[in-house]
Every structure is written in C-alpha cells, then in structure tokens.
Amino acid sequence: MSGIYNWMYYIASGGLILIGLYIVLVKTNLIKIVIGLNFIDTGINILLICIGYVRGRTAPIFSRPGISPANVVDPVPQALVLTAIVIGVAVLALALSIVIKVYQHNKTLNVTKIKGLKW
C-alpha cells in the first residue's frame, strides 16, 4: 500500500493530463476542448508541485518564525507553477474569445461541422 501512497500525487497529475488529452482528442464541442486544455495545464501544475514536495515540510515563507532551509519544500517549482498558471489564464482567455468569434461566424460549436478550411 505504501507504494501507491508515495506515488499518489504523480498518479493524480498523470491522470489529469491523460483525461485532458482524451477530452481534446475525442470531444467535438469547442468549449469542452478548451476545458480539456485546462485539465492538461492543471495536471502539469500538480506534477511540478509534487516534484518539489518533501513529505512533512512546510511552505518556504522565510518571514515566519522558526523556518529554516532544512524544514521547507523546494520553492523553485512553486515559482514555476505561479508562472504557468498566469500563462494558462492568458491562453484560456484568448481561446474563449476566439471560440466566441468562431461561434458568431459558424453558428455552431461542433468541430465536425466547422469545415471552412479543408486540409
């Protein structure tokens, strides 16, 4: 049991990434595809956090009393995740605004019916 317990976060992040990929590949509704992209982003953020996580240690806020480098988790992945969240929000906002335009032009969100450009 302890094996799964130790790998729990990795399994969760991998699962989220795979669910997101599944949604992007299979679903035909554009909004759902955008949600799938967001699932992938969230999965990666959890992956980054759990790479830097050390069991039993606390957040690296050095202004609090009693915090030393020996009892905090790795702060670098948390900085990376903050950046990745910001980028994810930007992509999400742009994606949704393009979806609105696509809907105005095609009157549908179903990707199998949007065929203006043939391959």
Binding site: L48, V76, A95
Partner: peptide, 29 residues
C-alpha cells in the same frame, strides 16, 4: 471566418505542444 477557424486549430494544437514542453521541463527538473 477563415482566420478565427485557423487560429482555433492553431491554438488547440499549439497549447498541447507547449504543455508537452512543460512536462519535459518538469521531468528534467
């Protein structure tokens, strides 16, 4: 019409691509 549709395609594939880059970076870290 063409521009938005093309941008949507590009955005979906491009952001899956940049997600893959980030996974690779996470593994390297």
């Amino acid at each position: 019409k063409e521009g938005t549709e093309a941008a949507m395609k590009y955005l979906i594939q491009g952001s899956v691509g940049s997600s893959f880059v980030l996974i690779g970076i996470a593994l390297l870290y």
